[in-house]
Design a protein around this nucleic acid. Structure first.
Lengths: 224, 224
DNA sequence: TTCTTCTCTTACAAAAATGTAATTTAAAAA
DNA sequence: TTTTTAAATTACATTTTTGTAAGAGAAGAA
């Protein structure tokens, strides 16, 4: 899916150049033509990334940036005219994700755009379904998915597998899992964890997933 | 909760200075002392942010950064010695989130650290919790939260409330909910939904939430 | 090797979640 | 108003989940 970039830049010549360059690089591009209602116009576009000049007519970029951040997490690249401005801006922390200076170095700009978009995409995806190599764990449905097969997990099974999966390829001690699973509850036998792990493994085996949870005797478990 | 920052910097003097500065600013700080197994050491730490010098003994920072990104989304700030290096790095897109140059301008560094941590926290939070006005529904934990109180939901309760909450202020028919809840399962009595709604309402009432699920006789329900 | 210890496995009991049946309530239609 | 009907309520039965107990298995130490 192609991403949509919104250009907020009042210099018409620069705007057209940028537009052409970004279109050539495969993006869907929109640009604001008037700046009397900038914040709302930006939010209305629902773009995947905003390129925001700090020097705008009517309203200044810092303000715009702050306002957008109140209701949206869209990636913002702020454009400044002077190098020295960047440091000031950074320390004020308006919430922009990246900064570039004019005149635009278009290769750098492209790199920053791609970097931000990639990270955002990944982050969104990660939060829905965790990739565990041979299978995936869907955290909304609380199911394991492999090929076209799904299998429901109970609360305990899910919690254990979730914890293992966010620590994939890392050794996780039995104590760690027990703390995560039962928190402050009254004492629960250490063997109960073994049983729960066993049940989880049984479900994984139903999907043909064998040995994905490895035991490290005396140390804990590892999800491979 | 305090965040943990990992310093990966081989110059011992600089390392100690940074460590002291970050501790003074409220972070938990760890620093690598040896660099013969950097990638794994970094991953093992499970820190909230990594400050990574690009010039390391044995292995170079670009490589380390790329390797980390294969399995982790931990925010990375890369440290370079020359200003000009930043542009090269950016265009190569190793996956770092921010760049700073040596010598460290500690205020800028602090701003970047806080910016990254804030964004990360927010992103996780937004997707975790659905705002339902008077209360919120946490989809990871499957609990209703109000003020400081939490209440666990069972699978059915959660599924119904989730469906209502993504359709907040919209009328949802009983059939819609039943389809969503029981999908292709064998026929389940229509009254069973009433019972499940009742159970959900009971839990909401335990939190002082009365009438948040309104009945529209003959039409369905609405979450206010 | 034997012994120790950690983990796995199986069976069972308790607790929690869910569905059903019977009855009551209350909104809307006649 | 009375009648009808959708939804709420309550009690109970069934199913699922979870924890415990007891013993088997297997890895590492002695």
């Amino acid at each position: 899916m192609r991403e949509k970039i919104l250009i907020v830049e009042d210099d018409k010549k620069i705007r057209k150049e940028l537009e052409a360059f970004l279109i050539k690089n495969g993006f869907i591009v929109k640009a604001l033509e008037k700046f009397d209602n900038t914040v709302e116009d930006i939010l209305k576009e629902k773009s995947d990334l905003v390129l925001l000049d700090i020097n705008l007519p009517f309203v200044d970029g810092e303000f715009v940036c702050k306002e957008i951040r109140k209701t949206s997490d869209v990636p913002i690249i702020m454009v400044t005219s002077r190098d020295s401005e960047i440091d000031e801006l950074l320390s004020l922390n308006y919430g922009a994700d990246q900064y570039v200076t004019k005149p635009y170095n278009i290769q750098i700009l492209l790199a920053k755009i791609n970097g931000l978009l990639k990270r955002n995409k990944k982050q969104n995806k990660t939060l829905e379904e965790i990739d565990c190599g041979e299978f995936s764990l869907n955290i909304y449905e609380r199911v394991i998915k492999k090929d076209n097969k799904k299998i429901d997990l109970t609360k305990n099974e899910y919690t254990i597998l979730y914890y293992l999966s966010i620590n994939r390829n890392k050794l996780v001690s039995r104590d760690e899992i027990m703390d995560y699973l039962w928190e402050s509850e009254e004492f629960i036998d250490d063997n109960t964890l073994s049983v729960n792990i066993k049940r989880l493994r049984n479900k994984l085996e139903e999907l043909g997933l064998i040995d994905v949870i490895e035991t490290r005797r005396g140390q804990g478990y590892i999800l491979k």
